[in-house]
Computed example of a mutant assay.
Amino acid sequence: MSDDETDRERDRALIEKEAVAWFTRTGGRPTRVERRDFAAWLEMSPEHARAYEDVSALWADLDATAHSLGEDGEELAGPLRKIADYRRARRRAKASGIVAGCLAVLAVSGWLWIDSPNLLQNLGADHVTDRAERRVVALADGSTVLMDADSALETEFSDRERRIRLLRGSAFFDVNPSPVPFVVEAAGGEARVLGTEFDVTLTGGRDVTVTLARGSLEVGLEGAARQVRLSPGERVEYGRAGLGAVQAVDLEESTAWHEGRLIFDDARLADVLAQIGRYREGRIVLLGSEVGERRVSGNISLENSEAALTAMQATVGFHMTRLGRRITLIGP
């Protein structure tokens, strides 16, 4: 095989993998930015659209049997036969083999969303933390970021602006003083400072909480004139309901995650479980919204997620069912 043919095969393999990642992400609840990026990816090349159509067609064919997959390898016989049939019918053994291989992995692991729901987002991020990992990142301007578990962000620095995009999770910023503004963007809003320490938490892809520990901070929505100025020990929330009112907070409570603890008072159970989920493999799935809306208070360690879940169960009294090692169902 010539070098050109090798390069083409490598490019085709990359496109197939990107198509699988896009198919997985768009099948969930993609953000407005992700939908825009997906449309741009499709328009880049006809090969992108063809690869995505191949993935969609194969997964539609597998869908009828994929839900029955378990840990027993014999249960894979049906899907694997369908993959083989599809490969022969399409007469694209190599390209289809890549797609089929990726989708077989999805089936065996019980859908990609269990283990890598943010795969595509991670590929575009500059800094990413794994589940159960907290890490300090040194930025080019001398500032530092403490990233919570399962978080991701992008950086874009210039002579006029230091901009961070929080893609998911939580991050604590210790900003090096400079005449150049430091801006943290998340879900349609932004916090703008010159030098300070503050937390930004993105929940559910849309709702953001900004908490100030030191200095001063202005927070506003993109394209809106109204802004609020925070003082140390204050926070503001924004999201689908717009920009909220400034509230006083207990900094020890709100920044407890820096030390691997979660302190909460009259919090939604769904929010607490989401934070615990950042520190464990697999998924915590709430069965119905009623249980998730229960209000809870507590002080738990995030270093042992199983103990944290058991403590919450003892406090709240919900039912907990484990499906293998990867999925935990929480119900009333």
Results as ranks from 00 to 15, higher is better:
G169I: 11
R131V: 13
P79Q: 02
T196P: 14
T196F: 13
I114M: 13
G189N: 11
V180G: 02
I164L: 07
R163S: 05
D159N: 02
P179I: 09
R131P: 09
E133V: 12
E197I: 00
E154V: 13
A132P: 10
D126K: 03
L112R: 13
G142M: 07
I114C: 08
Y86C: 09
K94I: 15
L139Q: 02
A138V: 02
A149E: 06
L194W: 06
E75M: 14
A93V: 15
K94D: 14
V184P: 04
K82M: 10
N122K: 12
R91K: 15
F157N: 06
A138T: 07
R192D: 09
V184D: 00
A152P: 09
Q121K: 05
L194N: 03
V99Y: 10
A100H: 01
V137W: 03
R135S: 06
C102Y: 15
E154H: 13
I98N: 12
T129W: 07
R81N: 05
R163A: 09
I114D: 12
G188N: 07
R87P: 00
I83C: 13
V137E: 06
V99R: 05
A100D: 04
A100I: 08
V180A: 08
S109A: 13
M147T: 04
T196R: 03
S116M: 04
Y86P: 04
G195L: 04
W111M: 13
V128P: 03
R135W: 12
R131H: 11
T129K: 04
T129L: 10
E190M: 13
T129M: 06
E74P: 00
G73P: 06
A186M: 12
R135V: 05
S116K: 07
A84S: 10
P179E: 15
A100Y: 07
R134F: 00
A186W: 11
P177L: 11
S109E: 12
V193R: 11
F182L: 05
D85R: 11
S170D: 07
R160Q: 14
G189F: 14
L166R: 08
V128R: 06
E156H: 14
G124N: 12
E133A: 05
V175L: 02
K82W: 01
R88S: 09
G142E: 02
A171Y: 07
D141C: 02
E74H: 11
L146H: 05
A100G: 15
D85A: 14
P79E: 06
R134D: 02
F172Y: 12
P177T: 01
S116E: 10
G142A: 07
I164H: 07
F172N: 01
E190F: 15
A77C: 01
M147F: 05
G110H: 00
S143K: 05
F173T: 06
A187S: 15
P117G: 01
R160E: 10
M147H: 08
A132N: 11
V105R: 10
D150E: 15
R162L: 03
G101A: 02
V183I: 10
W111G: 00
A93W: 15
F173V: 06
D85Q: 11
G78V: 12
S170N: 03
L80C: 09
D148K: 13
V136E: 02
S151V: 09
N122M: 10
G188V: 14
L103S: 09
Q121W: 00
R160H: 07
R163L: 07
H127C: 01
D174A: 15
R160P: 00
R163G: 00
S158T: 12
R87K: 11
A100S: 11
D174V: 05
